[in-house]
Amino acid sequence: MTTIDVRDVYKNYGKTRALEGISLRVEEGEIFGLIGPDGAGKTTLFRILTTLLTPDKGSATVLDYDVVKDFKAIRKLVGYMPGRFSLYQDLTVLENLQFFAQVFGSTIEENYYLIKDIYQQIEPFKHRRAGQLSGGMKQKLALSCALIHKPRILFLDEPTTGVDAVSRKEFWDMLHRLRKEGITILVSTPYMDEAGKCDRIALIQKGRLLAIDTPEGIVNSFEKPLWAVQTDQMHLVLQALRRHPNVASVFPFGDVLHLTPKSDLTTGELSNYLLNSGFPDVDISLIPATIEDCFMELMAE
């Protein structure tokens, strides 16, 4: 069953085109990732789907309710964690949670099982004001507050931005447990390495979708060969490779360079070229593409 259906949505802010014809469907019970850099339009799409903004053109439904006409119905059924920390800084952890439960006509007790795993980690600080919490704790409280009325869909706008790797991992583990409870999750992130944690993803850039598929599907659609070039002289080897006429593209990629060759180049020829250019200790190997390689390839098209 389709829980979110977006059909050709446009949104401008004055001259700035935030969304330029976005269409996507999110199925019930999946974790759907919206992956793209700042300014791609992720937050605008979230605001439209959570009924805080209206589209200029196109339409969207959430749980079969129209985002413009039926906004009141949608608001009762979804949980939203905005990118910017939006809880009451001068209320305590517990007061924030009570407030969000009551606004939705629920109680903490009723749905405690849903937030238990994550809330227990901040419960020792329940009398601390939300403004005094660390980044990781704020994030856990915000998720608890977005969940306490047991929404059918959870909208999470960049929930892991600015959070350390351990908290991020725990956060994703938590999302997978929530999915088992039947909650549909639409989550955005600028971090390509989080794409693999989603069931399906949409790559978004400058208000347009570059691709929608499973992470594996996107990676498998990368048709060119991709080589990893390993060297201790990153800067110089990169310059040398850029000068080679049969190198289509080459970029730094962590501790290696990723290179796409033109069709008539072999790794042996490239090794020889580097050897003759004064770089004997270079290792070249064929590797599978990552989501980030695909994103860059799609951006270039």
Partner: peptide, 14 residues
């Protein structure tokens, strides 16, 4: 380099 697209990010690392 938080928040930028992957191509811009690489230009920055260069």
């Amino acid at each position: 380099t938080g928040g930028v697209d992957p191509v811009t990010r690489r230009q920055f690392w260069e």
